[in-house]
Design a protein around this nucleic acid. Sequence first.
DNA 1: AAATAATGTGTCGTTTGTACATATTCTATA
DNA 2: TATAGAATATGTACAAACGACACATTATTT
Lengths: 244, 244
Amino acid sequence: MSKEQALKTAALEKISHLDYFNIAISVDCVIFAYDSKELKVLLIKSDLEEFSGLYSLLGDLVRTDEDLDAASYRILQERTGLEDVYLEQVHTFGSISRHPSGRVITTAYYSLIDVKHHNLRLNNNELHWHPVKGIKKLAFDHKSILDTCLNRLREQVLEHPVVFNLLPEKFSLRELQELYEAILSVDLDRRNFRKKIAIKDWLVDLNEMEEDVPHRPGKLYKLKPEFRRKTYRKKTSDTPVPVA
Amino acid sequence: MSKEQALKTAALEKISHLDYFNIAISVDCVIFAYDSKELKVLLIKSDLEEFSGLYSLLGDLVRTDEDLDAASYRILQERTGLEDVYLEQVHTFGSISRHPSGRVITTAYYSLIDVKHHNLRLNNNELHWHPVKGIKKLAFDHKSILDTCLNRLREQVLEHPVVFNLLPEKFSLRELQELYEAILSVDLDRRNFRKKIAIKDWLVDLNEMEEDVPHRPGKLYKLKPEFRRKTYRKKTSDTPVPVA
DNA sequence: AAATAATGTGTCGTTTGTACATATTCTATA
DNA sequence: TATAGAATATGTACAAACGACACATTATTT
């Protein structure tokens, strides 16, 4: 068990025996990445006996002196070493019995990172990237959290330029399409996909070509800078809404 | 100060002096209703000195033995007497300093009720319906919570049949259109609106007419039963998502 | 009986969505 | 070096949805 996990469990034990009014609050991060044409999620072997053999999301208790958003950001930093990440709060899970050690309410965030850019310490074999598609069961209610976050991601990508956080800065339209297909679990028509992306006007043509591909190289693009939104800064809640 | 509010404050005081790890968790309900062609929200006079003169949303601490969703449902029941309500979790607000009495993280829900159907005890003059449009400032961060919930509601109504929870069972298309206009703060073209509603295929023509209107009466409709979704039961997280 | 006010409906031009085929360019292999 | 293979790049035609817009009808009120 890692030092962090030990601390976490110790804190939980303590909490579960405190005052009647005491409820612990944690955050859980669904950290998505894209690799080998698959959407993957970062999981860790559960440290609880009840769930031995199962994996869980990365989470931790929220500290009294840190904002909720900051807690999720801290987890991401601790785990991936990344400073500048896309983070979005999705839902708060508050069933009485969702945590075997006591009452813990958890707020779920999802995060999108470029798998090439992180500094994961994957050397200990507790931390792994798992293809989202193959995941059947997780510790706690984490499968349900994962599903909820994946659904939110799917809703987001249809309208907002967020998937670019999963790609390197320069990418081809084929890579982009394959990414959408991986996230949505559908096949897309190439011509229609390109038309749709063109209309959004999110991309800059770099006038460069792919290299090291075993076929005709495609053009490279990057996201227009004004569409970047990465850090965990709280979204303003008064963004305008499209109307009927 | 009401008995409930007194209890709430007492609980907070207690909590704010507890262990380092202690964070209180509450729920706040944005209870919407529709009346006099305006979208309204139920507010109560704040019981804290810091916010004297200001109104706040209806909220309470979550009990150790109740689910998060159940807590919001309980508040609705206590306040409105309603059993069968539309409730949706929106966002969790967790800034360190959002509550002056201590660390309180709150999960916001919005609710839609038929203003004619509730059993509000509005006799004490602490509880009031306020037109959403006129609200400038609320206690705590409740203005920001209200804005967030209103935005979520606006997103929802464009795609999902939820506004019917704000209307009586039978309604005319004019009433429905006025409701959309109130929620979205826009003017809609009558013919296009009716076309759009017709396509959704949400309504049943009751072959009845409005009564007691000071002009030519319109036809009455009701929502098809299969589109009703009212109770606070947690949404399943594996609903299919439309694809590009 | 006439004026008023709200209901109810259709068309046309524009945009968006979707299905679908061919020419081009680079790589790999014979 | 010539040919085959594989992926890039692009346009058209039909269907559905969107948005602007005008007129006849039916109650009520005066």
